[in-house]
Structure formats: C-alpha cells, structure tokens
C-alpha cells in the first residue's frame, strides 16, 4: 500500500509540474512535450486506479497520435513570442475572469461530490477482473445508442475535415500514382531495330 502511495504522489507531482510548464514554457514545442508528459503521468495514475484500459488508450490515442500531429504542426510554425505577448495586459482581466469561473465550477463539483463520505469506497476487484471486457460490454449494451451517435458524429467530422481541405491547386506538379503504376513499357519505350553499320 505504501509503495502505491509513493508512486501515486510521484506521478501526481510530475503531472502538476508538467501541466504548469505547459502554460509557462516559452517555447511552444516544449509546451507540447510537457503536455505529452502530463498525459503520460495521468495515464499512470489511471493504471494505479485499476483503469488500465483507459490509461493505455490515453497513451495510444493522445500521446501516440494526437500529440504527434500537434508537435508536427507546432514545429513547422514560426511563432514570434514577443508578438504573442504584446496583448498580455489587455487580455489579462478576461483571462483571469475565465480562470476564476473554471476554478469556481471545479470547486463546486469537488466539494459537493468528492470524498469518502459522499461516495462509498468502490469494492476492490478480484485479480482476474477484466477491465477492458467490462467496458466493452457496457458500451455495446447499455450505452449502445450513445456510442453509435458518438461514432456518427466523429464520422461527420472526418468527412467535413476532408471536404474542407480537399482542393487541388492548378499549379502544383501533382503526381498521379495510379497512372504511374499503370504505365506499361510500350507506352514509354520504343525499341528501334536497326541494321548494324558497316565497318568504316
């Protein structure tokens, strides 16, 4: 038990520090990398909470795919930090107000619904309890419609993203691979038969 506590506090400390560095780091690439670290530590905490499926999926989806694309974009951008900071004072009151609202909302939820006196301690599961299977069962029975609707919304988003970005500029030297693959020797190459020249 003590060992688990040590690990929990270790990962929580890393999580909080990484989250702080996400917003304080000067370099956007560093921010993105700290966000990756934050995802990783929270995945570790989820695994400690016996939610191993969620933890692994967090790493797989957010760290392995989303953040890679994020980094990809951030590395390509040429961000001028001085320009970004120019409006800092002007936007500070608005930012502070939004921050306060978020803190207040979280406080209300936490104070009302958290703690052992509000929610009973969940019973420890047996060692062979299969978290992944349990989630699958619930998703495909109890929450089937919600799950399907979420899937359809994602599909619509994919189609919309493709429709918005699919355009072909006239001036690009775009290659058509299927045409290239279909090319046969006789389309490009002409074998000329010639008589041998006489020796001079």
């Amino acid at each position: 038990m003590a060992f688990e506590k040590i690990i929990f506090y270790l990962f929580s400390a890393i999580l909080v520090l990484a989250a702080l560095r996400v917003i304080t780091a000067r370099n956007p690439v560093h921010s993105a990398l700290f966000l990756v670290l934050a995802f990783f530590s929270s995945a570790a905490i989820w695994v400690l909470l016996e939610a191993e499926f969620l933890g692994i999926v967090l790493v797989l989806v957010y760290v392995g795919a989303v953040m890679v694309l994020f980094l990809f974009v951030v590395m390509m951008l040429n961000i001028n930090i001085a320009q970004l900071r120019a409006g800092f004072i002007r936007y500070l009151p608005l930012g502070a107000a939004i921050g306060l609202v978020v803190v207040a909302e979280m406080a209300i939820v936490m104070i009302r619904n958290f703690g052992l006196d509000k929610v009973a301690r969940p019973a420890a599961k047996a060692a062979d309890y299969n978290n992944t299977e349990a989630i699958g069962r619930v998703l495909y029975t109890k929450y089937l419609y919600a799950f399907e609707i979420a899937a359809v919304i994602l599909l619509v988003a994919i189609i919309a993203a493709i429709a918005l970005t699919m355009r072909r500029r006239k001036d690009t030297k775009h290659q058509n691979p299927s045409e290239q693959v279909r090319v046969r020797k006789q389309d490009r190459l002409r074998v000329v038969k010639m008589d041998a020249e006489k020796k001079q």
Partner: peptide, 17 residues
C-alpha cells in the same frame, strides 16, 4: 496483463517521439 496487445500498440506508437 489482460490488455497486453493494447499496451504494445501504445508503446510502439510512443517510439516516434
């Protein structure tokens, strides 16, 4: 572990960093 296939998929995707 039960989800070892997922674990491996997750870790191989982290290698790109």
């Amino acid at each position: 572990i039960n989800a070892s296939l997922l674990y491996i998929l997750a870790l191989t995707s982290v290698g790109v960093y």
